[in-house]
Computed example of a mutant assay.
Amino acid sequence: MREIVLIGIGTGNPDHVTIEAIRALNAVDLVLIPRKGPAKADLAELRREICGRYLEGRARLVEFDLPVRDAEGEYRSGVADWHRAIAATYRALIEAEAGPDAAVALLVWGDPSLYDSTLRVLDLMALGGFVFRRRVVPGITSLQLLCARHGIALNAVGEAVEITTGRNLRLAMPAAASVAVMLDGGCAFRAVEAEGLWIYWGAYLGMPNEILIAGPLAEVAGRIAAVRAEARAVNGWIMDIYLLRRG
């Protein structure tokens, strides 16, 4: 039976790849490297760098073009169609490139458990009749790195933490004392009541062009939006995350 191994590789720094991840990488037969277009070519290059640094085993690297999500229309149905397209791509690649008992690695940005679609894509493959075992190797998440870079704890003492998206934040500010926001393409922090809120923001965490800003939301929201727009224009893409904290 084939095995698909999801390996969390952290958020941009090869030094954050764990020993367990390195061992898993060297035990597989095939590593799939997704290409996401010219604007995000450095994401594929990071995966190549990780393999070049740590891979000593028998694995072959196979690169492929990842399907692109259609941004038009209803969001959830668009994501569902996108996931099905990725599942079909993975299945076709594995059937063409890997033997019936091969181990195949997918290098997942951050950790497969936190706002990543790969585990759901594997569910779709299984539901479609593709037989395989799965294994997950955890990685450092952007949320962990954000807290480390700012030197803060994720939670306030005895208080809850909520992890959400920019899309949800625009609908309502959660009641939790600490709110971590991911996948915010439109600076949703500017849509919430800033009084009493502090923001810890980071972009390109773990990479050489890492950016950090923190302060009272009312004072730094405009600066973050401007810096974010400039960085995205320069790099062609951006990955960022932030923590909102009351008090």
Score class of each variant (00 low, 15 high):
136 V>M: 09
56 E>W: 01
86 I>S: 04
79 V>M: 05
117 S>K: 01
22 I>C: 06
146 L>V: 05
105 A>W: 08
47 R>D: 02
204 Y>W: 10
11 T>W: 04
158 G>P: 04
101 D>P: 00
212 L>I: 09
89 T>Q: 13
116 D>V: 05
216 P>F: 05
101 D>N: 13
175 A>L: 05
97 E>C: 14
106 L>M: 14
95 E>M: 03
120 R>S: 14
135 R>Y: 04
225 A>F: 06
60 R>P: 03
18 T>G: 00
203 A>S: 15
103 A>W: 07
12 G>D: 03
119 L>R: 15
125 M>S: 03
9 I>F: 07
146 L>D: 06
182 M>N: 02
175 A>G: 15
159 E>P: 05
174 P>M: 10
54 Y>D: 07
92 A>K: 12
48 R>I: 06
244 L>Y: 02
6 L>V: 02
19 I>D: 06
206 G>M: 05
128 G>Q: 04
185 G>F: 05
228 R>F: 10
146 L>K: 05
238 I>D: 04
38 P>Y: 11
37 G>M: 14
157 V>S: 01
65 D>H: 10
19 I>C: 03
39 A>G: 07
48 R>Y: 14
101 D>H: 13
221 A>F: 02
192 V>F: 02
168 N>D: 15
84 R>V: 02
33 I>L: 12
20 E>F: 07
68 V>P: 00
176 A>R: 01
144 Q>M: 13
18 T>E: 04
240 D>E: 13
66 L>I: 03
121 V>N: 02
34 P>A: 09
64 F>S: 12
74 E>M: 07
62 V>G: 05
114 L>V: 15
60 R>M: 09
48 R>T: 03
88 A>D: 10
160 A>E: 11
2 R>G: 11
29 D>Y: 11
84 R>N: 14
212 L>F: 12
230 E>H: 14
37 G>L: 12
71 A>D: 12
93 L>W: 06
7 I>L: 07
15 D>Y: 01
